[in-house]
């Protein structure tokens, strides 16, 4: 590599002699590093690509030649998955529930966080730590009682129940993150607005909330993906009526029925339907998505 062309004369000191082998090693490592990076890239993409390509093949083609390309584009697989296996309906169900749950989470999370960040009152710390303490508890522990809490409230097998539960379990992180975010906003703007006779509510919705937009977007993306990908809660709280299922449940059912029917193409089409929109949104907004999710990690 070009590193070997470096003029050694520019460094006329004893280090020079030891310098060359090191640089050669870096050159070799360079080629190696590209190799490893490419390998991992392939490992990531290949299963997804295979799924996508297989979704256009006939079942015969999938069994006879798993690595081959489809002879013709069999779009009927997608139709069978979309309508026959109701993936289309589940997709819309998930969209409705997650829209509701993310909106509710953001509204409740932002209002609570704003109070914690900006108002002094007795017991504030206690209530704040009550919320943030929830970060430490695994959902698993609550699963059995939660099932009965939801059932006794008449919310078992309802979307409303699922929306409320999603929102409740997302509050710890949302409140924690947004409280920190509201604290970073300058107080002078709020004080000026109050002096000008702006009410507390107006101040929040007209001034503070717009100022908190970057933080809100990060948390909203984080919550959207975690609600959209949720499987455990719908499986426990939305067991009955298959027409109300979430996408994850529908895909699972599709995979189970595929075991009996042997309709691999339909399963791959169903998975592709679920993957493509998410990947498209991710690629379009990847900077925000990566920021939102890594912010989630660094809480």
């Amino acid at each position: 590599m070009t590193t070997l062309d470096q003029p050694t004369a520019t460094a006329p000191n004893p280090v020079t002699s030891g310098d060359r082998p090191v640089r050669r090693e870096l050159g070799v490592a360079n080629a190696l590093s590209h190799g490893f990076l490419l390998l991992w890239g392939l490992l990531t993409v290949l299963p997804l690509l295979w799924m996508f390509i297989s979704s256009f093949k006939t079942n015969g083609e999938i069994l006879a030649d798993p690595w081959g390309l489809p002879g013709a584009l069999h779009l009927d697989n997608w139709a069978r998955a979309w309508t026959g296996a109701h993936i289309g309906r589940y997709f819309l169900n998930s969209l409705v529930v997650v829209t509701g749950s993310v909106s509710l989470t953001m509204l409740m999370g932002a209002t609570a966080a704003y109070v914690f960040a900006r108002y002094e009152f007795r017991g504030r710390q206690v209530v704040y730590y009550l919320f943030v303490g929830g970060l430490m508890f695994p959902v698993f522990l609550a699963l059995v009682p939660l099932f009965f809490v939801v059932r006794n409230a008449g919310l078992f097998n309802t979307w409303l129940g699922l929306i409320l539960v999603y929102a409740a379990y997302s509050l710890p992180f949302t409140v924690f993150f947004l409280t920190a975010f509201f604290r970073t906003l300058p107080t002078s703007v709020a004080e000026a607005a109050l002096v000008d006779g702006c009410g507390h509510f107006r101040l929040f919705f007209r001034v503070m909330l717009p100022m908190a937009r970057p933080g809100m977007i990060s948390v909203a993306i984080f919550n959207f993906l975690s609600h959209w990908n949720q499987f455990l809660l719908p499986q426990v709280l939305l067991q009955g009526d298959a027409s109300k299922w979430m996408l994850a449940q529908g895909l699972f059912a599709l995979s189970v029925s595929q075991g009996y029917a042997g309709d691999y193409a339909r399963l791959f089409a169903g998975l592709s339907i679920a993957v493509l929109p998410v990947l498209a949104v991710y690629v379009a907004f990847q900077r925000q998505v990566q920021a939102g999710l890594t912010a989630g990690q660094l809480k």
Binding site: M108, L146, V149, L164, V165, A168, L171
Partner: peptide, 8 residues
Amino acid sequence: LYVFFVVS
């Protein structure tokens, strides 16, 4: 919401 679905 939190006390009902999470804490309890």
